Amino acid sequence: RTRTSFTAEQLYRLEMEFQRCQYVVGRERTELARQLNLSETQVKVWFQNRRTKQKK
């Protein structure tokens, strides 16, 4: 599997969503992935990694 390189715009949007809600599921995840031109899996994993980073 190749590592995803997020654009600055994608990271900004993901961070904004994370500040709003640390868990994104269902339709929200589908819509966010579509808007950012990413897969739902990429969005899901980004949120998982971001929550892990916050715990440290």
Rank of each mutant, 00 (worst) to 15 (best):
R1A: 15
R1C: 13
R1L: 02
T2I: 11
R3T: 15
R3P: 15
R3A: 12
T4R: 05
T4C: 09
S5H: 08
S5G: 12
F6R: 02
F6T: 03
T7E: 07
T7V: 04
A8C: 08
A8S: 11
A8I: 05
E9N: 02
E9K: 04
E9R: 04
Q10D: 03
Q10R: 02
Q10F: 00
Q10N: 07
L11A: 11
L11W: 04
Y12F: 10
R13T: 10
R13Q: 15
L14V: 03
E15Y: 01
M16A: 12
M16R: 07
M16E: 14
M16Q: 13
M16K: 06
M16V: 11
E17R: 04
F18T: 01
F18C: 02
F18D: 03
F18Q: 02
Q19P: 02
Q19M: 10
Q19S: 11
Q19R: 06
R20I: 05
R20M: 12
C21A: 09
C21R: 08
Q22A: 12
Q22G: 13
Y23N: 14
Y23S: 13
Y23T: 14
V24G: 04
V24M: 09
V25N: 06
V25Q: 14
V25K: 08
G26T: 04
G26L: 06
G26C: 03
G26I: 03
G26F: 07
G26K: 09
R27S: 15
E31T: 07
E31Q: 05
E31K: 03
L32K: 03
L32Q: 00
L32C: 01
A33D: 00
A33Q: 00
R34Y: 02
R34H: 07
Q35H: 09
L36M: 08
L36Y: 01
L36R: 01
L36N: 00
L36Q: 03
L36D: 03
L36P: 02
N37C: 12
N37A: 08
N37M: 03
N37K: 10
L38F: 02
L38A: 07
L38V: 13
L38I: 06
S39Q: 06
S39Y: 02
E40P: 06
T41P: 09
Q42K: 04
Q42C: 03
Q42F: 07
V43S: 03
V43K: 01
V43P: 02
V43A: 02
V43R: 01
K44W: 09
V45T: 14
V45I: 06
W46D: 01
W46C: 00
Q48P: 00
Q48K: 14
N49A: 09
N49Q: 12
N49L: 11
R50K: 12
R50L: 00
R51E: 06
T52C: 09
K53C: 15
K53N: 15
K53I: 12
K53M: 10
Q54P: 13
Q54K: 14
K55M: 06
K55E: 15
K56T: 14
